[in-house]
Every structure is written in C-alpha cells, then in structure tokens.
C-alpha cells in the first residue's frame, strides 16, 4: 500500500529518528510513504481567530499538494503525518475549509497560482493508519516482544483536541497508542497526565514552566512504575526529554527516564536494525535501559 506522506520541518532536524523509525516500521508492514513532491511548513499551530485566513494558507497549500500528487500517482486521496502538531494543523485547516465554502473560495482565489483545493483529502495520523491495518498484523510482525517494558503512552494535546481532530473515539480516555504498543507485547500504565499539555512552545520564552510540567509528568509515570514514555510529537519529546535537565535543576530528586517515539519501539519489536531507529539522538540515553532489558545488544 502506498500513501501520500507529509514530513514537516522538525522531522528533518531534531526528530530525524522519528521519521527514519516510522518509515522503517511502515515499510516492514508493507506501507510505502510517498513524500509530497514539494512541501512547506504547516505553521505548527492552527490559527484560532475567526478572520485570520492568512495563517491557513500553509496547511491548505500542503493539502493541495497532496490532492495533486494523489491524482498523479493514482492513490487514494489520503495524507499521513507523523508529527502531532502538523497533524492537528493540517487536519483542522482541512476541517475548516470542508465546512466553510466561503473561506475555501477566498483561499483558492488568493492562491491563484495553485489548482483549487477540492476539500477532499483525508488527513490521517500514523497511529490511525497502524490501528486500521490491525492489531493482528502488529502481533504477527512482533519477533521480539516488548513484554519487558512498562510504558507510559503520552498523547499530549494535539492528537486529541479539539474533538474534530481526535484520533481516538474517546479523547478524554484514549487507548489507541496503548492498543498498538500492547500488540507488540509491551505493558502500559494508566496515569492522569497522558492527555495534558507539556508546556508546548512556552519552552522558548518560559523554560521554567515546561521544566515544571516535565517534572510533574515524569514523576507521575515513574511513581506508577513506568520505564519510559512513548509519544508522537517532536515538541512534547523535546520538552519531556531535553527539559529533564532544567527539571532536575529544580527538583534534584527527579528520576530520569527515556522518551521514545512510538515507532522506535515498534521497530525494536519487529527486529529492525537499531541503526535505523536513532537511539543516539536522545538527551536521556535510552540504550542503558534497552540493554538492561536485553532489547539491544551491547
């Protein structure tokens, strides 16, 4: 199966391991990500003002590229994303223009150099694609069970809110990531912060706030016996991983734990070469844990 794929900026810089591990996992399951022929940054945050069409140009341009590429390649009119923030921005912009013909018209007229957007692309997150393919397929492909790992699945905000963008039928009690990780053998914990904000972009101007959020979230999962956190957002990953440094300066007793992108661990379960999974790109090195659990060799 081939599907149009939108990477986004951060997957080409600080989250290269998220992209390489996702592509490897998808490939293993017979899914080929066909990267858009040309793409731009989506803007990362969906504009919430009722009149700010300018900020919707970027995600709609991405959707137009997907529409045109899909026509040319004869693919189903779908677009898959990995980054939670790209997913949310593109999904919400799509939702807006699908339901507001006047705004769609204005945007199409402004972008007179592009073909009109027909508001027909279906935006998916990779987790939804995995869920669709089926838990059985993940089980079948699991060669090395993750049963030795106790994981805290962290959704953050943008996979679940607003409701129109939720990848889970129950945004307030999500289970899609748990289902997928459990299919690969892992155990998962329940905890109160799984769909709460990590402090997001305040990490630029108010480092301390994100460090405090990181402390709260990590302490909560450690108290419940988690070995690591799995997630799907490069900004959550940055805050929960890199900001452990500042969190430790504020709370010396905090225990460090590694932060994974979900495909990195699926990749391990499928027996994909760990070079493709990018365990060397973390602030809190996950390799000691993985060695201890005998998931990677020395």
């Amino acid at each position: 199966m081939e599907i149009a794929y939108y990477p986004g900026c951060t997957l080409r810089t600080s989250a290269k391991n998220f992209e390489s591990s996702s592509i490897a996992v998808a490939d293993h399951l017979g899914i080929t990500f066909k990267e858009l022929s040309q793409w731009n940054c989506c803007g990362t945050v969906y504009s919430l003002a009722s009149d700010d069409l300018m900020k919707h140009l970027a995600p709609v341009r991405v959707l137009i590229r997907a529409q045109e590429d899909n026509k040319e390649n004869g693919l189903d009119n779908k677009l898959v994303t990995l980054c939670s923030m790209c997913y949310n921005t593109v999904k919400m912009a799509n939702h807006l223009v699908k339901n507001d013909e006047e705004k769609l018209d204005t945007i199409n007229q402004f972008m007179d150099e592009e073909p009109d957007y027909e508001a027909d692309v279906n935006v998916l997150h990779f987790l939804q694609l995995l869920d669709e393919i089926g838990i059985d397929r993940i089980k079948e492909n699991t060669k090395k069970s993750l049963e030795v790992l106790n994981l805290a699945c962290y959704y953050g905000c943008y996979l679940l809110r607003p409701e129109e963008a939720s990848i889970d039928e129950e945004p307030e009690a999500p289970s899609i990531m748990e289902r997928i990780m459990e299919a690969a053998g892992a155990r998962t914990i329940d905890y109160p912060f799984k769909n709460e904000c990590c402090g997001s972009y305040l990490t630029v101007t108010e480092k301390k706030y994100t460090a405090e959020r990181t402390y709260k979230i990590i302490s909560s999962v450690v108290n419940r016996g988690a070995d690591a956190i799995v997630l799907s957002c490069p900004l959550c990953a940055f805050n929960l991983d890199r900001r452990q440094k500042q969190a430790k300066e504020l709370h010396a007793n905090m225990k460090s734990i590694p932060i994974f992108y979900f495909p990195q661990l699926l990749g391990l379960a499928f027996g994909i070469n760990s070079n493709e999974l990018g365990f060397n790109m973390h602030y809190v090195d996950p390799r000691p844990l993985l060695k201890e659990k005998r998931l990677i060799k020395r």
């Binding site: 940054c41 803007g43 140009l57 150099e113």
Partner: peptide
C-alpha cells in the same frame, strides 16, 4: 520561521 507560505515572494 514567520513565513506563512503565502507565496507572494515567488
């Protein structure tokens, strides 16, 4: 990083 992809430059 403030680019909104409006393409006016192009």
């Amino acid at each position: 990083v403030k680019c909104v992809s409006c393409n006016t430059c192009t």
